[in-house]
């Protein structure tokens, strides 16, 4: 209660990875809530499938039970690893929640990584019901559980496919001031999202740049949208 942090903090859930080509990737690491839900969904799928299998194999008597036990063993240990390696880093549950597993350096997860992180579930499960795994996840900057730490993997949110910006129609004007990439993106974002904001809020935002555009209110909004259209490549 008494700690006034001397340096301003800036919290985020991104992990930045630089590729050998010098490109910086921002990966959105995924925390406990989404992962617990994904795990629950996977468990439902897994045990549902095993239950159906049990119904079928039970008709074969003892041999069928043996087969079922083998299936139980295989799904218990290899279901997540198999999907993580061959289905783009995501089990069905993870896919539903928009998650996927990658190496901490941003590369796709491979067999050793997937096997280690999934075999070590046994450790994360200790002392019971993923107690250690949860605490490790909450303590770790990248929400890695112990298996993730051992395998050098982490779980991130998949990026949705980028779509072309849908801007409200109108004329396009080049901006009178130079803009860096982030600012250009910001203007396009504004134009794109202006339809979801109420007019007062639109004007409020546009007024922040009134000194630069020289326009207030609705006119300012329209001007910023025109700049955005120009930046998005529409002809003047």
């Amino acid at each position: 209660m008494s700690t006034r942090s001397p340096t301003p903090v800036f919290l985020d859930t991104l992990r930045h990875v630089e590729t050998p080509e010098g490109i910086e990737l921002s990966l959105r690491v995924a925390g406990p809530v989404a992962r617990v839900l994904a795990w629950s969904m996977d468990s439902l799928i897994r045990y549902g499938a095993l239950w159906v299998l049990l119904m079928v194999l039970a008709m074969l008597g003892e041999g069928g039970m043996g087969l079922w036990l083998i299936a139980l063993f295989l799904t218990e240990w290899f279901y997540p690893a198999l999907f993580e390696v061959y289905a783009g880093g995501a089990t069905p549950g993870k896919k539903a929640l928009g998650l996927k597993v990658i190496h901490a350096n941003g590369t796709p997860v491979d067999w050793p990584g997937a096997l280690i992180r999934n075999l070590l579930r046994a450790v994360d499960f200790l002392p019971l019901l993923y107690g250690f795994g949860l605490v490790a996840m909450l303590c770790n900057r990248n929400f890695q559980r112990l298996g993730d730490l051992a395998a050098g993997t982490m779980v991130i949110y998949r990026d949705p496919a980028a779509a072309m910006p849908q801007l409200p129609p109108g004329r396009a004007l080049p901006p009178p001031f130079p803009l860096n990439t982030a600012e250009q993106q910001l203007l396009i974002d504004f134009a794109e999202r202006s339809t979801t904001l109420n007019p007062e809020r639109q004007a409020e935002l546009a007024d922040l740049l009134a000194r630069q555009t020289g326009l207030y209110g609705v006119a300012g909004v329209e001007r910023l949208c025109a700049h955005a259209r120009w930046l998005a490549g529409e002809p003047t």
């Binding site: 919290l11 859930t13 995924a30 925390g31 809530v33 989404a34 929640l97 909450l138 949110y157």
Partner: peptide, 10 residues
């Protein structure tokens, strides 16, 4: 979900 993660970080 990402929003809840920010809560954990906070």
């Amino acid at each position: 979900w990402e929003a809840t993660d920010l809560g954990m970080v906070m």
